[in-house]
């Protein structure tokens, strides 16, 4: 059992026999984690589906109250960030340390853009009183928006369950936003590890796993966007 033969085998943890085994285990672990995440969000999607079928009018009006342009912008931003994440993995695999760092930074920056756009969306909703559940109290511009949205969607009056729609809107996008923040944090950590030269052509597993996670965050948004903003 000698370690001298491979200078970079320090990344191989003691309880694995080969780097391939270690990589495969990490990958399986990550996929399981993603499966877990899907079920976690799955609960929210089920709640969405149930309430949508019970209170269709509230859902129609609700989706008209969300700004699909902001949503679309954020979708584009996230898609782009998935691309930069892939590039970061590729650079890491080919041993291009500098590019890896830059792509990670680009991904973090795009995630930041996403959060800023979300901030503006939230700020507006808070301002006009589109708050979840018991706090739902539209006023001023908010009321005008509701009237407009109801007219557009051919609904009479203000559906009572708009409060539920916004309740779910905030929970779903909030939990997703939390995942974006966690992703930014992890990518920052990866950036630092990359800076210290921990990754190489032989070992880039952490970057790959981070990217997998980031794709999941992306995919979930791809579902959230049409469900919340588009279909009516």
């Amino acid at each position: 059992m000698s370690t001298e033969a491979h200078g970079d085998s320090h990344f191989l943890q003691h309880h694995y026999d080969t780097p391939a085994q270690q990589f495969n285990a990490a990958k399986l672990g990550m996929w399981l984690f993603l499966a877990q995440e899907l079920l976690f969000f799955g609960g929210l999607f089920v709640a969405y589906g149930v309430f949508r079928s019970w209170y269709p009018q509230a859902w129609v009006v609700g989706s008209h109250l969300l700004d699909y342009r902001m949503g679309a912008l954020n979708t584009a931003v996230l898609l782009l960030s998935s691309f930069t994440a892939v590039m970061a993995v590729r650079s890491a695999q080919t041993g291009n340390q500098k590019a890896t760092g830059n792509f990670l930074l680009a991904t973090i920056a795009l995630a930041g853009v996403f959060m800023v756009v979300k901030y503006f969306e939230y700020a507006h909703k808070f301002e006009v009183g589109f708050l979840p559940g018991s706090h739902f109290a539209p006023h001023g511009v908010g009321l005008a928006e509701i009237v407009e949205a109801a007219r557009e969607s051919g609904v009479n009056g203000v559906p009572y369950h708009l409060r539920t729609f916004f309740g779910l809107y905030f929970v779903m996008t909030g939990v997703h936003g939390l995942h974006v923040l966690i992703g930014m944090f992890v990518m920052g950590w990866m950036w630092n590890r990359n800076r210290k030269g921990e990754f190489s052509t032989r070992y880039s597993t952490p970057v790959e796993m981070t990217a997998l996670y980031w794709h999941l965050v992306d995919i979930i948004w791809i579902f959230l966007f049409p469900l919340l903003y588009l279909i009516d």
């Binding site: 995440e37 609960g43 209170y55 739902f136």
Partner: peptide, 26 residues
């Protein structure tokens, strides 16, 4: 994870009243 999201919703319902489980809010 389904329990996790359920409990998260329950706690949020209790704190801010999102109106998912509480019949008083629909």
């Amino acid at each position: 994870p389904v329990l996790a999201i359920t409990l998260l919703l329950l706690a949020t319902e209790k704190i801010v009243g999102i109106g998912i489980f509480d019949p008083a809010l629909g």
